[in-house]
């Protein structure tokens, strides 16, 4: 009886492996097919002759390395700041004695469910005007022989992506980290505090190390949400050398024609680094999250 039950459970897991891993396999085949095979062929068909040139074309026409670098840079900086800023805020809300903690939390919660598209127009307006409000859009400084002049702008720089990405990811990050930090027994901090340690020190050497698991969760969430983001990127970035990976995909989709195989190849190239990194880290991610994500 128990064996049968176990068998059924394993069968279930096996089926799930097939269904969840299938897209990768499908994509790989897709990327090696010709347009005709993709449009006309049946679902399970293999390419008659693998069309490796798809990869060559995708690599060349898609500015792969440039876009990859930009994606990595934007995502990396965003993740760093999301973790830093939101863990500090979450800690302040969870532990500090101040009147407005809950108000701040509510303000953050409000923004958690706002779709990006709703804020595009105001964001464009803000980015356009911040430099001129700060007087930096056409900055002259003249003092004897010192002559400084520059024009700072946000639109069409990576900053115009990183800033809203951070801002949009912080609410959920604060929510998760705050939930965790509230559950840390406060005896540890209290004794450290009595011993004369500053809040900064407590935060850095006690709170951050035990918060690694939820920080991992936040990392994954942030990464997933940003890596494939296209709408903001397309709206705020115009220069070829600043564009991110999702652009490559769309750059094949033009007005009057489509190279499906190339798109597939580019998608494989785009997904590759993510999958490699994910599997290198997966043990750490699941293990890391284990350490204390549940109320201890």
């Amino acid at each position: 009886m128990k064996k049968i039950k176990k068998g059924i459970v394993f069968l279930l897991f096996a089926i799930l492996i097939v269904t969840q891993i299938y897209p990768l396999f499908w994509l790989l085949l897709y990327s090696l097919k010709t347009n005709e095979e993709i449009l006309g062929g049946s679902f399970f068909s293999f390419p008659a002759a693998p069309k490796w040139t798809n990869y060559k074309e995708a690599y060349e026409a898609g500015h792969y390395l440039q876009y990859l670098f930009n994606s990595v840079f934007v995502t990396g900086v965003t993740m760093l700041f999301v973790i830093l800023l939101s863990s500090m805020t979450a800690y302040a809300i969870a532990r500090f004695k101040w009147k407005y903690g809950q108000v701040v939390m509510t303000v953050f919660l409000l923004g958690m469910m706002i779709p990006l598209q709703a804020t595009l127009l105001p964001l464009m307006f803000i980015f356009k005007n911040i430099p001129s409000v700060l007087g930096l859009d056409n900055f002259h400084f003249h003092f004897y022989f010192i002559n400084i002049h520059f024009a700072w702008k946000i639109i069409n720089t990576h900053l115009s992506l990183i800033l809203p990405y951070i801002a949009f990811q912080t609410p959920i990050a604060v929510f998760i980290l705050n939930g965790f930090m509230r559950s840390i027994p406060h005896e540890i901090e209290e004794s450290a505090y009595m011993d004369g340690a500053s809040v900064y020190r407590i935060f850095r050497s006690i709170i951050i190390p035990i918060s690694v698991p939820p920080v991992m969760t936040v990392c994954i969430l942030t990464f997933i949400n940003i890596w494939n983001e296209y709408i903001l990127a397309a709206t705020f970035i115009s220069s070829e050398k600043l564009k991110t990976l999702p652009f490559g995909v769309y750059s094949f989709v033009s007005q009057y024609s489509v190279n499906y195989g190339d798109i597939g190849a580019f998608l494989v190239l785009g997904a590759l680094p993510v999958i490699v990194i994910y599997f290198l880290l997966s043990e750490k991610i699941t293990k890391g999250m284990v350490a204390g994500a549940v109320k201890g």
């Binding site: 800023l85 939101s86 500090m88 805020t89 800690y91 302040a92 809300i93 500090f96 101040w98 701040v104 303000v107 953050f108 409000l110 923004g111 706002i114 709703a118 804020t119 127009l121 105001p122 964001l123 307006f125 803000i126 800033l163 809203p164 951070i166 801002a167 949009f168 912080t170 609410p171 604060v174 809040v199 900064y200 935060f203």
Partner: peptide
């Protein structure tokens, strides 16, 4: 200290998410 912990995050959030919502 509260300001150091909360303001950077809050300012960014208010400017780029909250104000656009109000707009």
């Amino acid at each position: 200290t509260i300001a150091v912990f909360v303001l950077p995050c809050l300012l960014l959030y208010v400017c780029l998410v909250f104000i656009p919502i109000l707009v």
